[in-house]
Simulated scan of single mutants.
Amino acid sequence: MPYIHQFGIVACIEKDKEYIHYEPEKYDCISVDGDLIDELSSKDFGKKIDNLKTFAHSTNRPYNNLSYFGITLIPPSSHAQFLNIVREANDDYKSEQLEELMKKIAEAIKEDKWLIHFGA
């Protein structure tokens, strides 16, 4: 069975909340195949995503990259960088799922909201 990653928008981030429950429906998440996320973590993209400022499960836990098997909170300050990484990857892979992810990131930028990522 293929593994997937889910990305959604958090309407209002709770600063001290522990985001520990798998709730992709709550955040209107889109799905991205694990193989595509693997590609973001490899080659030249991996170096870029390793510098993506995020948080693991809580705004009290600074992190870099996506929490592959956990929950990642992506602040608005990191959206432009994340969008550029996904756009570059999509130039190589031409994926509808990466297109949808770019739309989700753009929506978060427009609304100035945090993204949430549920790992595989």
Rank of each mutant, 00 (worst) to 15 (best):
H5C: 06
N65T: 12
Y68F: 14
E39R: 04
K94S: 09
L66N: 01
V32L: 07
V86F: 04
T54L: 02
I105Q: 06
V10C: 06
K53N: 10
N60P: 00
Q81D: 13
F118M: 01
S42H: 07
S41E: 15
L66M: 07
G34M: 03
K53S: 10
D112Q: 14
E18P: 03
H117G: 02
S58L: 04
R87F: 08
D44R: 13
N84I: 05
Y63P: 01
E25C: 12
C29P: 04
K104V: 04
Y22T: 06
H5M: 07
S58T: 13
I105T: 04
H79S: 09
A108H: 04
C12T: 13
D112G: 10
Y3S: 08
S95T: 08
D44F: 14
P76N: 10
E39F: 11
R87W: 07
G119Q: 06
E99L: 11
V32Y: 02
F7E: 02
D44L: 14
Y68P: 00
L73W: 00
H117F: 01
D50V: 07
L66P: 00
Y3K: 02
K110S: 15
D16A: 07
D112N: 15
N64R: 08
F118C: 01
F55P: 00
L40P: 01
H117W: 03
N60S: 12
S31E: 13
C29G: 03
A56F: 10
M1R: 05
N90A: 08
E99F: 10
K17L: 12
D38F: 07
P62M: 06
P76H: 08
C29M: 08
E18K: 15
E88P: 04
E111W: 11
Y27A: 03
H5W: 02
E100Y: 11
I20F: 12
L115C: 07
E14F: 04
T72W: 02
E88S: 15
V86L: 09
L83V: 02
D28C: 13
R61Q: 09
L36A: 02
E88W: 08
T72L: 03
